[in-house]
Amino acid sequence: MVAGTEKTTDAPWVAEMRRIRDDRDRAAFAALFGHFAPRVKAFLVKSGAEPSVAEDCAQDVMVTVWRKAHLFDPSRASVATWVFTIARNRRIDLLRRDRRPEPEDLTWGPSHEPDQSEVVEMNQETERLGAAIASLPEKQRVLIEKAFYGDLSHREIADITGLPLGTIKSRIRLALDRLRHAMR
């Protein structure tokens, strides 16, 4: 289910993001939309949103991608990861109406143009991570997915976040250990 094991040095969608940021290029945006909007919608549906709500939300997420294009830094995240964070934050205010506190940002911004080698490195890391997730044992992978879709019950969430040891917590820990190992 995870693509991205092919060897490339060009990080996917980074060129489009630059054209959106620098030239407000609508064709580049349309291409990005074709790829990410359906994935964001699927993510929100899997997170429990009604399809019509997920549709509206996915549209909002893509508008945010356009507006915040100058905040994207390809040396710190893949485009998919950046889109994920926007979709996750949108889901939080949609489903829970909570604010999403974000850490202080020191380096992101239009004045910071990352080194090409850092961008390549980030891309390679992303590919390794994709391969590592794909090779996780089924049970661990499903739990990681459920955790990210917000698809765990309160009790299960408590097991992840709280102190008592539960199977879910230890399975996720196991999965994370494996992933970290694969990233070395």
């Binding site: 909007a37 359906p38 994935r39 993510f43 899997k46 998919a80 889109v83 991570l129 997730i133 990210f148």
Partner: peptide, 22 residues
Amino acid sequence: SLDGIGGTLIEGLDGAAMDAGA
């Protein structure tokens, strides 16, 4: 890196078709 896992999951999803005119 945990955000990266989220990104990888979203990248690997089969998309849900957007409405016509979206």
